[in-house]
Design a protein around this nucleic acid. Structure first.
Lengths: 310, 310
DNA sequence: TTGTACGCGTTATCAT
DNA sequence: ATGATAACGCGTACAA
């Protein structure tokens, strides 16, 4: 890849003339412009964006730092965000990290690069944002501590409450919630919305925290349930398989509701319904943050339940 | 984020002195060095890697351009590659693309940025590599056309053959292969290895191409099979659920073998065995390419079958 | 119509 | 021990 100076020498002109030809802003003869453009195409010249960014102080790179890659939800989310940004002329680059320390390191690295904006998906609410980020930054799912970043999130309590409403409308009342043990906004609030709405209906919340092994069979033996609200579709699929292996019919005996509507899982079976995660809305909100907004611009959509077999 | 010049002014010294302090290469008094380091820490100074790369012509960024994110296999692969590169002091950044045209565009963009190396996962064998890439480039799964890149791949024929051997050792003989209709090296060679080994054993290859909907039930009705070799774990899980829904016992009636050993899927059930995809080996090979090697350095490991319930 | 000079933030080399 | 200067590749302002 040649530089603009080399291209200028190749054409026997100065860098300034090359620049005029490339950006087509007149003040140049048809002849020289044609020659320069042809030589540029011949050598596959392309301006180095890094140099341009250094010059103009404006980057088109938006860096996303995420904790792990093997989460279908995160991948769907990143894909949508990437598309929305790409349409706005921005490039999303994704870097997975193994540890919070590594996440801090990479955020600092990209901050030093003066990227346009940063998207951070912390492992949990405890993540401390490095100080001195002077570009727009947003976090999803969990809230960062320290620094200044916009925390973009849906109304997770509403999601948890909607799950309860859905099951009750289906005539179920022994509704359990399967979730994780993680100090993360999404996990906590969704469970809170579930619990509050259960109590509002005079029902007793039953929460199963999944740890290493699936303790679902024992849980079901002790607690007679007819509905399971799972934190995500993967947990829902897990539950479905466990129930099937124990001869429990889904959704006849126990109805299952997941969340996210991850195509990877939901295309696998039509036994589980799911709550649509508002990917597009969140991506749009993030674009607003990148563009300089400091908070939510449009209200979070109300929970949308994708009903399958009931 | 302040610049080194600003830091110099803050300390009342020149940029050269700041550089000496930061890189600790002597020729500087304890006093000034201490002051500079403290001021740097105070303002969270960090050298802009983009400027350094422009200066030295050496980048630590390795760009991976992939077709889609919602593939568990790709995510596992990217995660391993990232870790291996990170240990070598390199940063992997991942950018998903929606179309081949977009892939071409992004490859050109990163080439213009003079990144250290490029990892390309083409959608199929038809992808035309843009000309003029002058950094190490490698492709996985499918081979690029045009340009110069190293195609890193395992012995896919051996994988297909190993699947047949495995089933035969289990006493199965009506072995079908479920795969995609895509002109991709991995897809084609794996199927070829399967077919060749089937014929070698005097068995008739039966290949089911999955398109939109699962036509597995009809396929099984017409072709009595007792074993299914699926191109990946997701297809295997798909097959498992379809069979279960039709009252077919796995692995008693029909045994299923997937490939990749994607934790996302294989942790979901112990009915399907799988062939371990050599993630680490491939990542190591790629690191070799990044470091200047022009081909495979170590032989591909022989197929490793992860046996579950049989 | 074209060339020249400067600055972005680094690093490296030379001179003081 | 420290400062000045050049260079990386680009864009822009100004001079010719």
């Amino acid at each position: 890849m040649i530089s603009s100076l080399e291209l200028a020498k190749l054409c026997g002109v100065s860098q300034g003339t090359v620049d005029r030809a490339l950006h087509g802003r007149g003040g140049i003869s048809q002849q020289t412009q044609k020659i320069i453009l042809e030589t540029a195409a011949l050598h596959g010249y392309r301006a180095n964006p890094a140099a341009r960014e250094l010059m103009t102080g404006q980057s088109r790179i938006v860096a996303a730092v995420i904790p792990q890659l093997n989460s279908a939800f995160l991948m769907d989310l990143a894909g949508i965000v990437k598309s929305v940004l790409y349409q706005a002329g921005l490039h999303l680059i994704i870097t997975p990290t193994d540890t919070p320390a590594e996440m801090t390191e990479l955020i600092t690295e990209f901050a030093a690069r003066r990227c346009r904006a940063m998207l951070i998906i912390p492992h949990d609410d405890g993540f401390m944002l490095p100080a001195g980020l002077d570009m727009p930054a947003a976090s999803f799912l969990s809230r960062c501590k320290g620094g200044k970043s916009v925390f973009l999130h849906t109304d997770e309590k509403a999601n948890g409450a909607a799950a309860v409403d859905y099951f009750i409308s289906q005539g179920r009342r022994n509704i359990a919630h399967i979730t994780y043990d993680r100090p993360s906004h999404a996990v906590r609030e969704r469970a809170a919305g579930y619990s509050e709405n259960m109590r509002k209906h005079g029902l007793k919340p039953q929460i199963l925290i999944v740890k290493d092994q699936s303790c679902l069979p024992e849980f079901i033996k002790n607690n007679p349930v007819d509905a399971l609200f799972c934190h995500n579709d993967w947990l829902a699929l897990n539950a479905l398989r466990t129930l099937e292996q124990h001869g429990i019919k889904v959704p006849q005996d126990i109805s299952i509701l997941g969340m996210d509507n991850s195509p990877l899982f939901t295309s696998l079976c039509d036994e589980i319904s799911t709550i649509q995660y508002p990917f597009e809305w969140l991506a749009g909100e993030f674009l607003a943050v990148v563009s300089g907004s400091h908070g939510q611009t449009t209200p979070a959509p109300t929970p949308n339940i994708i009903k399958r077999r009931t």
